Computed example of a mutant assay.
Amino acid sequence: MGEPNILLTRIDNRLIHGQVAVTWSNHLGTNLILVANDEVSKDQVQQSLMDMAAPENVQTRYFSIQKCIDIIHKAAPHQKIFIVVRTPEDVLKLVEGGVPLKKVNIGNMHFSEGKKQITSTVSVDENDLNVFKKLTDKNIECIIQRVPDEIGKDIKKFF
């Protein structure tokens, strides 16, 4: 089929919620939010909750990382895909599996033990930074940006 029409990939531990569902979806003009997450792909309750947040005119899909890798190239040309994942590692797995990503929006990575806060919504540890370095070494732009009208920050500033 050709290359899938992936508009953007976002890292957000909350996956689909108001910012993703409304602000980013409208800004991008997406018609499909694809959540690539092993846990959520098997959890109907989480999927139902996220479906409630998604706009009516936007379809949702919940795939494991591997299923996303396996079928993304079968996407129809009219599908304007917005991929949402939970972690930088998920993005790296997608890229290493052949998913053609060019830009990653780093939206929300919660603070937890061992992480340092680098912006108001993003906390990272050494592993996260190493993964971002691998992604940028593959010429994938990684920008921290909460909402579309905010000026993004290149993750390379934090290496």
Rank of each mutant, 00 (worst) to 15 (best):
G114E: 13
L92C: 04
I81M: 09
S48Q: 09
P77K: 15
K93F: 07
F82H: 07
H78T: 15
L129R: 12
T87G: 07
E96F: 09
K103V: 15
C68Q: 01
K102V: 04
L135C: 08
K133M: 11
Y62C: 01
Y62S: 01
N105I: 03
K133Y: 11
V91F: 01
Q59A: 15
L135E: 04
N108Y: 12
E96A: 12
I65C: 00
L129H: 15
Q117Y: 10
M52Y: 10
D70T: 06
G107F: 03
A75F: 09
V58Q: 01
P55H: 09
V122C: 05
H110A: 14
K80C: 07
C68S: 08
S48H: 11
M50L: 03
K74M: 09
A53C: 06
Q66T: 06
K80E: 09
T119D: 03
K74T: 12
P55W: 02
S48W: 09
D51V: 08
S112W: 05
G114Q: 13
D137L: 06
V99M: 03
R86A: 08
M109W: 04
I71F: 08
S123P: 03
L129P: 08
E56K: 14
N130F: 11
M50C: 11
G114P: 10
H73V: 08
V122T: 02
H110T: 12
D90V: 04
D125I: 15
A75L: 12
Q79P: 08
K103I: 14
A53V: 02
F111R: 02
N127K: 15
V58H: 02
N57F: 13
T136L: 09
K102F: 07
V91W: 00
H110N: 13
Q46I: 05
V104D: 00
V104E: 02
L101C: 11
D90W: 00
N108E: 08
P77D: 15
I72D: 00
V91S: 02
I106K: 01
V58G: 04
E89L: 06
V91D: 00
S123F: 10
D70N: 10
K67V: 08
V99L: 03
Y62T: 01
G107A: 07
K134D: 09
A76D: 13
K67E: 08
D137R: 07
V124L: 14
V122D: 01
T60R: 07
V131D: 02
P55G: 08
V84C: 13
T60K: 11
F111N: 04
H73K: 14
P88S: 07
V84E: 04
L92K: 03
K67W: 09
P100H: 12
N108S: 14
V85S: 02
I118P: 04
G97R: 07
D125C: 15
S120H: 09
S120V: 02
T136E: 12
E56D: 13
I71K: 05
V91P: 00
L94R: 00
E113L: 10
P100R: 12
A76G: 14
I118E: 06
L94Y: 02
E96T: 11
T60N: 06
K133C: 08
V131N: 02
K67R: 15
Q46T: 11
N57M: 12
K93D: 11
N130H: 15
S48N: 14
E126V: 13
Q79A: 07
T121C: 08
I69E: 04
S123R: 04
G97D: 05
I83T: 05
K133S: 14
I72C: 06
V122P: 01
K115E: 04
